[in-house]
Nucleic acid binder design. Structure first.
Lengths: 193, 193
DNA sequence: AGATTAATATACCGTTCGGTATACAAAAAG
DNA sequence: CTTTTTGTATACCGAACGGTATATTAATCT
């Protein structure tokens, strides 16, 4: 692993464990066995490091989500696919997933929140569009597509958070397709009745 | 408002807006028009201020939750009552509610997280007990009471978060009993099928 | 009235913060 | 074989951090 990647990895671990604001630049470079100018050489600033981390880790997930959300398939299939992608993203690096969520729920004025926000806005908007297409076919959503998008994302996250709490550090059990189906069904029951 | 209360109010606003770590003691006392030794006189430390804030604001909510969770009524009624109490708590001070949630989702090693944790553990455990009593009557929960408790709390929060996003700053619409019912029903459908 | 306590301020402590000027080594390019 | 570029380190910056020693004012008690 090169030093740039190493710095991002160390930063991720510390940001996850202690929170973005509570971690000093000094602490990151010490964990990596490097010095501050090296970090500033690659990232320019502490927030630049976080932004690069988001870019390299979140963008692929976002791409997959957009692909699934824009597919012209049945809403249930679309939601199932979105659940699948999100679980895979969680399983790939649970620390990173939990870091994203912590940042998402942090204060609006915080610069770390402002760094993650655009990604979640994009995520959310592509899911809104999926519901809008569905409304075009069924026409009974009463303009609640935005609420459904937040609700769906929230349901998935709630499920993964529960996984996380249940299964804290040791070897995580793979989430089955059956489990994803049941989460999607539960959500759809709440929406379409 | 006395200076002690004033300091807590200013701290709450700042913690909500910028996050616990990002707010300096200096900033809090400046907003209150006071000086640092006054804050240290009342609270001993920055974390002491947060703890006092939690004590004075969270404890009443927690008491109501315990009362409702321990009532010997039907599980649906219990959950409805819990939903009602939580919505009231949210409506009483939405900033404080969102601050609690941000702290709950923040990093485990963070001292602010460790300050809120005991309250949420208690909250969660009293709800677990409610499900356990229900299992004693129905006997079909397969030891998933803890999951149901997190799931229920998560569902309520998801709903309130959605309210918050929909209705950001202006005069908030009161949440109706009908809305609470539908959230509880949605949750119960997911559980008891 | 005098003594005591509660509440607040001035001015400072050492530490850590994010960030940088400068130098130097290694590697790539000419 | 120079020259340039890339990567890394030493040593430092001013500002802000959480916290405190001490003094002073205002209220309470005896």
């Amino acid at each position: 692993m090169n030093n740039k990647t190493l710095l991002m990895e160390c930063a991720k671990e510390l940001f996850y464990a202690k929170g973005y604001d509570a971690v000093g630049v000094q602490e990151i470079v010490e964990r990596a066995g490097l010095t501050k100018p090296t970090l500033y050489y690659y990232f320019g600033s502490k927030i630049g490091l976080l932004k690069t981390l988001l870019e390299t880790r979140f963008e692929r997930y976002l791409f997959q989500v957009k692909e699934a959300a824009e597919a012209e398939s049945d809403i249930r299939d679309t939601l199932y696919r979105l659940g699948e992608i999100s679980c895979a993203f969680y399983e790939e690096d649970r620390q990173f997933y939990m870091l994203m969520m912590a940042l998402l729920y942090s204060a609006r004025e915080n610069e770390a929140y402002q760094a993650v926000r655009p990604y979640f806005v994009e995520l959310y908007e592509s899911i809104v569009r999926a519901f809008e297409r569905e409304a075009g076919r069924l026409g009974n959503m009463r303009g609640r597509q935005r609420q459904f998008a937040i609700g769906f994302l929230g349901t998935i996250h709630q499920y993964l958070f529960l996984q996380w709490e249940t299964d804290p550090e040791e070897n995580p059990g793979k989430i089955s397709g059956e489990q994803i189906s049941s989460v999607v069904d539960q959500f759809m029951y709440g929406i379409f009745t």
